[in-house]
Design a protein around this nucleic acid. Sequence first.
DNA 1: CAGTATCCTATCGGATACTG
DNA 2: CAGTATCCGATAGGATACTG
Lengths: 121, 121
Amino acid sequence: MTSVTERDVFLADCPARTTLDLIANTWSVVVIAGLGRGPARFNDLRELIGGISKKMLVETLRRLERNGPVARRTISSAPAGVEYRLTPLGESLLEPVRVLSRWAQDNADDFVSAQDAQLVG
Amino acid sequence: MTSVTERDVFLADCPARTTLDLIANTWSVVVIAGLGRGPARFNDLRELIGGISKKMLVETLRRLERNGPVARRTISSAPAGVEYRLTPLGESLLEPVRVLSRWAQDNADDFVSAQDAQLVG
DNA sequence: CAGTATCCTATCGGATACTG
DNA sequence: CAGTATCCGATAGGATACTG
């Protein structure tokens, strides 16, 4: 029994594509990877993630919250604040995110040199 | 012996972050995944990848070409045209891209329902 | 501490028309 | 077939100032 509606990233207007649109961007990947280290407060995340603005961090967290992978919790005990953590869905996203990040880290020098070669040539 | 310059996606202005910026977007992921099926012509890719415009396909291919994962070749034999294929670097990117795409396909329904719940609530 | 609100620019990305 | 060129609206994203 195959379902009539496929889930294929090659198809426009498919939930799989919509999902890819939401997770396949730098800030989503880095925020998920950051929360993979454990629950964190807003400003902890800002310190961990170099170059992210308050605006983008808020927007990224809200979007991930809306779609499931991230949960937000208010801390009443001192020091008061908020805590973000991965949901089970977010935990399952951790592996893809880490595989991609690791690739970026391992192949960064090849990318850079290819770009340099282009600039020189 | 640890190198002085780290390769960490958490660091702004790090080659790893720059690399992530270039690959962590929908069109890059889908184009790499598409070329993972084998070498393809420009219009073959346009047919395979739903919703991509000529403009975005050209720009994505050029960017991936500049940075290494994709190679472009002119076909002189009939029917004449061009062929895009993955380089060895591109092949190594295939696994991360497939892991991410598969996650999107497998969890698309959870994402959608989470969003629906938000709309209702 | 954890945001909001506003402004402004750059890039994304579709539509359309044209080219060798 | 495989683009290029141009126009245009929508979104990304930084800077800054303000808030409970």
